[in-house]
């Protein structure tokens, strides 16, 4: 999995590329930990280039969301592909991690 980090005044965007699965979750964990260490208050996970999320990837997203909540910070998700969106929806993930269709909406939502 490739991860590009973009630091903005309102938060950090992680542009993910590849599958978020049991086999390749290490890179995501590292990127999240780095954002946390940097004091990130709003982590936006851009899922536009993520084709597939398995159960382990889903658990990791929830774990990250919960750990950010404990720090009064937030995790949001950006533009998941249809199949990933379906998986998220089945597990009720949008109730925990808001999903946005563009960066501006995500950034504004947190600021509001």
């Amino acid at each position: 999995m490739k991860i590009k980090e973009r630091v903005l005044p309102q938060g950090i965007i992680l542009d993910l590329e590849g599958d978020l699965t049991y086999a390749n979750q290490a890179a995501f964990k590292v990127a999240v930990e780095k954002a946390k260490q940097a004091g990130c208050r709003h982590l936006i996970v851009n899922m536009e280039q993520v084709r597939f999320v398995d159960s382990a990837g889903l658990g990791l997203l929830v774990l990250v969301s919960q750990s950010f909540k404990r720090l009064q910070a937030q995790v949001s998700m950006l533009k998941p592909q249809n199949y990933v969106r379906e998986i998220m929806s089945l597990a009720n993930i949008p109730k925990m991690i808001p999903i946005y269709e563009n960066e501006q909406d995500a950034l504004i939502a947190r600021a509001a």
Binding site: S55, A56, G59, L60, V62, L63, Q66, A91
Partner: peptide, 9 residues
């Protein structure tokens, strides 16, 4: 949910 993000459906 476990500390490693493990869970059941």
């Amino acid at each position: 949910l476990s500390a490693d993000g493990e869970y059941f459906t």
